[in-house]
Simulated scan of single mutants.
Amino acid sequence: MDCRRLLVPAAACLLLAATLRVRAEDAPPLRALQVQGRDFPSLTMEIAPDLADAAHGLSPVPGCDRIRVRRLDELAPDWRRRVHGVQLDCDTATANDAGFETVALSARALLRPGQVELAGHPVTEVRLMDSELWGDHQYIVDAPYGQAAESLRRHVEASCRLWRLREETDAAGCTMSAVGDGLFLSTSEIGGIWIHPDPENARRTVYAEAWAD
């Protein structure tokens, strides 16, 4: 046997591995992604429905068995290297007035340190809670409410004025109001933006965009 034939591909593999390692070490570190609000990443996806069920007229609305978290390579490009992992809880909610059951999703993305910022503060988690009747999308800011609230308020109000300027509507309603232990800005008849302490960790602050039917 000619051992040289085996050594050539092996050497090529070693050279390729060394080249990739050098490139990874030389690659510049990621700059923090500056999120603004209204720009939450999609963390879940629907598995293709069973065609046999559809042929028998069964509901096309996906149940928990047809919803899964996205793999890191399935996230939007800006998020792939910034997310450490994604967790998902899915429950069948109480049937609504029409007699149909709804699905309630709670997805959480754990972020790599220093990779995402909101209004100058690091973001440690993304929490997306959704059903057909309500939604609550959150950035978890790694700073106490007393430290982060003012800069987040300025960011929300400035963004509101910019949004309304683009839509050519009155920007007079862009002032956040104190509600309970936080701040609130109405953005529609059924929803708005909240800033409040994180009930799970007093050292963190929640930026939330929520609605309820």
Rank of each mutant, 00 (worst) to 15 (best):
residue 176 M to F: 01
residue 196 H to G: 12
residue 194 W to R: 05
residue 166 R to W: 13
residue 174 C to R: 03
residue 175 T to C: 02
residue 172 A to G: 08
residue 195 I to H: 03
residue 169 T to C: 03
residue 178 A to Y: 02
residue 176 M to N: 05
residue 165 L to G: 15
residue 188 S to V: 12
residue 164 R to Y: 06
residue 175 T to F: 00
residue 198 D to S: 15
residue 181 D to R: 02
residue 175 T to I: 09
residue 186 S to L: 06
residue 186 S to I: 02
residue 186 S to Y: 00
residue 165 L to M: 13
residue 167 E to W: 05
residue 188 S to T: 14
residue 198 D to Y: 06
residue 197 P to A: 13
residue 165 L to C: 08
residue 182 G to W: 10
residue 191 G to T: 14
residue 167 E to C: 04
residue 166 R to T: 11
residue 186 S to T: 08
residue 177 S to W: 00
residue 194 W to Y: 15
residue 189 E to A: 15
residue 175 T to W: 00
residue 168 E to D: 09
residue 189 E to Q: 12
residue 186 S to Q: 12
residue 186 S to K: 07
residue 176 M to H: 02
residue 178 A to W: 01
residue 166 R to Y: 13
residue 173 G to D: 11
residue 174 C to I: 04
residue 175 T to N: 01
residue 187 T to Q: 12
residue 196 H to A: 15
residue 192 G to L: 10
residue 169 T to I: 05
residue 165 L to D: 13
residue 193 I to S: 06
residue 187 T to D: 09
residue 189 E to V: 10
residue 192 G to I: 10
residue 186 S to P: 00
residue 173 G to L: 09
residue 196 H to N: 15
residue 177 S to L: 14
residue 164 R to A: 05
residue 190 I to N: 11
residue 195 I to R: 03
residue 185 L to M: 08
residue 171 A to F: 00
residue 176 M to L: 14
residue 198 D to W: 03
residue 172 A to V: 14
residue 167 E to Y: 02
residue 164 R to K: 12
residue 194 W to K: 05
residue 192 G to D: 09
residue 167 E to I: 01
residue 170 D to V: 07
residue 195 I to L: 15
residue 178 A to S: 13
residue 184 F to M: 08
residue 168 E to A: 14
residue 164 R to L: 15
residue 165 L to W: 08
residue 198 D to N: 15
residue 178 A to K: 11
residue 182 G to M: 13
residue 171 A to H: 01
residue 187 T to V: 11
residue 186 S to G: 09
residue 177 S to Q: 14
residue 174 C to E: 01
residue 178 A to I: 11
residue 193 I to L: 15
residue 195 I to G: 12
residue 184 F to P: 02
residue 194 W to E: 12
